[in-house]
Nucleic acid binder design. Structure first.
Lengths: 159, 159
DNA sequence: TGGGTATATATGGGATAGCATGGGTCGCCA
DNA sequence: TGGCGACCCATGCTATCCCATATATACCCA
């Protein structure tokens, strides 16, 4: 399993600790010491990724041809706004109050897999967001089977 | 941990002393005797870095083909205006009043990690700056996950 | 196929060490 | 000799580590 998949609802205890879902930890690999968390720019949620991913970003920053405001954004928002949180012996992390308060996470949290990264949501907010996204997709008549069918056609055509 | 990450709010005591965040000190390494602080060219804040990094900056400056006035500006502002401050036994530094007053730092200070360097802000000013950066990014629809995805693609492609 | 057992995971709480912070004292330089 | 800065010690808080427990899942054996 190489990507972050599906959603998990976990509790946040009095100390602010949260169990990272075991399947997410296995994606991170046995050598991972923790994760990196920062505020999502688009959503009222937190983004999470592996430390390796952030280091990758750091290394590739110099090579990427980004607009100056993107640099500024990354330097301040990601590196300044992110928190590296380490696993304890049980695979938990303690999320800093500054981040959880900003997105309304209190005693429960949803981990949402997003392939290379994942998100952390307040359960009610995620439910609302998910419902809105779904109805928007329906309105646009987006369906997975159609997308896959279209992709397969494209593949066959290219062979 | 090889880069300066995340933000920390610390107190400035009556003597003008400030604890440098432990994680920043660990980035600087066990042999670091202090840090270098100077006024940011772009922001109403202070820039900080390791002594080694300033030397690196000095060397890379010589290789750059800068117009004389820019060179002059940097020499005067950065190298002339920078202060080397040493750690005390507890990992604190005392910031010169000339610098703190110039950027409005009084009894509280924010350390903001910026990868190879970090910044020192008045908390209120940083909050405003951060909010402005965020909303600008949102307006431009800069997505961090897109940037990260692009970075990974580039990295994978380069292997 | 069903029951029982073992393992993994999530969760909770207590102990401890590290860290931020404050105050005091000694020595140096003006 | 007075003021300032550097070192030393004390303290409270918080994060980290360690151990205990409940629940769910997987496995095994009859």
């Amino acid at each position: 399993m190489a990507v972050f998949l599906s959603s998990f609802v976990n509790r946040v205890d009095k100390k602010g600790r949260v169990s990272v879902p075991a399947s997410f930890r296995s994606v991170l690999g046995p050598d991972a010491t923790g994760i990196v968390v920062f505020r999502s720019l688009q959503y009222d949620a937190l983004d999470g990724c592996s430390i390796a991913h952030l280091e990758l970003l750091s290394q590739s920053l110099e090579k990427l041809d980004l607009p100056p405001e993107a640099y500024e954004l990354i330097e301040t928002t990601i590196f300044g706004g992110s928190q590296q949180v380490a696993f304890d012996g049980e695979g938990r992390v303690s999320l800093p109050p500054s981040l959880t308060e900003a997105v309304g996470i209190t005693d429960e949290i949803v981990f949402v897999g997003r392939r290379k990264t994942f998100q952390l949501w307040n359960p009610e907010k995620f439910a609302a967001h998910d419902a809105a996204t779904r109805s928007a997709a329906r309105a646009k008549d987006l369906s997975l089977s159609k997308i896959i069918a279209a992709a397969s056609l494209k593949m066959e055509g290219s062979v």
